[in-house]
Design a protein around this nucleic acid. Structure first.
Length: 515
DNA sequence: ATGTCC
């Protein structure tokens, strides 16, 4: 019986565009979870998606999932409902290996993440569109959007000099770094990871790796890159003002209280990563490893250059882990500073208003976790960690009993969600999706979607934006049906909804909207 | 995603 989709290098860089809910031999359906590719020696890929969600997986996405599953040292592969084509591995997958590290399934934006700030401000306070316009202006003055954009003059008091830059990429959100940047130090307790260490589990390894990197030609602008701290960047990154709607059941209300979420109040959701600094590190690693594969003549997994890897313990693996951690530390401090600046912007419009970080959690990172009783690197590429209450790894956190917050951006018109993991999440390597997931490529979206329709959808939902023209490749219709994605997660027993977030205004990079 | 091609 043929149960495999054979990896075909010829198709790796293009999509046929065909979509089908794969139901052929080899697919196991258990509730809404299904599996691809079981053989006697290879456990299946676990696919989480309702039938209509599985129709959104195109050929290339499934091919990338199979390629990743069959790559050296990989013991588990999970495909989430928001999955779509990525860099070697699909965006929306979890790849586990106890023996190898893979840069592709972390991606070019190291530690791209979500964070949520809860404000002590009733929804009615921002009902007036003029007030929301003031907030948009105050926020854009402090946290700019767009590629290459760095700090605005309004945040001079939080200037990042070279010494502080070096300290923050090595230490992450340490007390000293937080104090130097005006970030409340207790926010570090509301991070999935407030800092990352080097390959030997110490910060010393990062310090010495950084010294090496600073001699590299592409790192001569290190100090400039540190000026991007507190900025969003472009693409799918955004800031979004929300109204919290806690779910109408006892568990949601109880968990929301632990999370510090307040029904009917204003919150602010942010999506960004490690900016130019992370990009230099990630692209440097791809180039370096690809060159070594060429020199050594080692076969690439499925012939795909984007699936280069390094065996743990090798100098290459150590360097990758160190570079990833340096980038991750930048992303962490970037998010916390953005939240501090957004709070400052709210205080400009509403003097004295208080705000607290609900959580900061990544969807592009490899973490060392215990899987099947042994340490393994869990690569989450467009996937969010989902650990339920009572799990040993949450013991020292404010979420030991409840499980930690899971922050899932949907779209500005249908809303976003805060979830909490259920016991069933063990089946997905303690992971869920990272959002809605693309259903149209950027070029495709620009061809088939209409600006007027997008604008009127925002208007009818009374969602404002800083953009004169909202980027059409970021329109809600370019993404999957968020409710169907959430249904996939809930019906598979992975996580439950705690709250919905209803957008009131969006901050995005519109500099490419006229392309 | 991105000093959007060193």
């Amino acid at each position: 019986m043929s149960t495999q989709i054979k990896p075909d290098p010829k198709t790796k860089n293009r999509s046929s565009g065909e979509r089908h809910a794969y139901t052929g031999p080899g697919m196991i359906a258990t509730g809404e979870a299904t599996a691809l590719l079981p053989t006697e020696t290879t456990p299946p890929i676990k696919v989480f998606g309702t039938e209509s969600i599985r129709e959104t997986f195109d050929d290339l996405c499934l091919q990338q999932a199979v390629n990743s599953r069959l790559a050296p040292g990989v013991t588990d592969l999970v495909l989430n409902p928001d999955a779509h084509c990525g860099y070697g591995a699909p965006v929306g997958c979890v790849m586990v290996s106890p023996t190898h590290i893979y840069p592709g399934p972390v991606g070019v934006d190291i530690k791209c993440s979500m964070s949520l700030l809860q404000l002590d401000l009733p929804a009615e306070a921002i009902e007036d569109r003029k007030v929301r316009r003031q907030l948009i202006s105050a926020i854009c003055q402090r946290t700019p959007t767009g590629a290459g954009k760095g700090q605005r003059s309004a945040v001079k008091s939080r200037h990042v000099n070279r010494t502080l830059g070096k300290q923050l990429v090595v230490e992450g959100a340490s007390d000293d770094v937080c104090k130097a940047l005006g970030i409340p130090t207790n926010w570090a307790h509301r991070c999935e990871d407030s800092f990352h260490v080097g390959h030997d589990e110490t910060a010393d390894a990062l310090e010495s790796r950084l010294e090496t990197l600073l001699h590299r030609r592409d790192m001569t602008n290190f100090t400039d890159k540190m000026q991007q701290l507190g900025s969003y960047g472009g693409g799918n990154h955004f800031g979004e003002c929300e109204v919290v709607e806690v779910g109408d059941n006892d568990r949601a209300r109880e968990v929301a209280e632990t999370f510090g979420l307040h029904d009917g109040k204003v919150a602010f959701l942010s999506h960004c990563g490690s900016r130019g600094f992370g990009h230099i590190l990630a692209s440097g690693q791809f180039k370096s490893l690809q060159t070594k594969f060429d020199q050594w003549g080692i076969p690439l997994p499925a012939g795909d250059r984007q699936l280069v890897y390094a065996p743990l313990g090798s100098g290459e693996a150590n360097d990758y882990i160190d570079d990833m951690s340096l980038g991750a530390n930048f992303a962490t401090v970037n998010h916390l500073l953005i939240n501090a600046l957004v709070l400052e912007a709210f205080q400009e419009v509403f003097p004295g208003v208080k705000g607290n970080l609900v959580y900061f959690i990544s969807h592009n990172i490899a973490r060392k976790e215990i899987v099947d009783d042994r340490p393994a690197w869990v690569h989450r590429k467009g996937a969010t960690r989902a650990i339920p209450g009572g799990h040993h790894s949450l013991r020292e956190t404010p979420f030991a009993k409840s499980g930690h917050p899971i922050l899932l951006p949907g779209n500005p018109c249908d809303g976003s969600a805060v979830m909490v993991a259920d016991e069933g999440a063990a089946a997905s390597c303690y992971s869920v999706n990272h959002g809605a997931g693309r259903v149209l490529g950027r070029r495709h979206a620009k061809r088939v979607l209409d600006q007027t329709t997008v604008d009127s959808e925002f208007e009818s939902n009374d969602v404002l934006s800083n953009c004169r023209k909202y980027p059409i490749d970021e329109a809600p219709a370019a993404y999957k049906d968020f409710n169907e994605v959430l249904r996939s997660v809930k019906s598979a027993g992975l996580a439950s909804e705690v709250a919905r977030l209803k957008a009131r205004f969006v901050i995005k990079d519109a500099s490419k909207a006229d392309d």
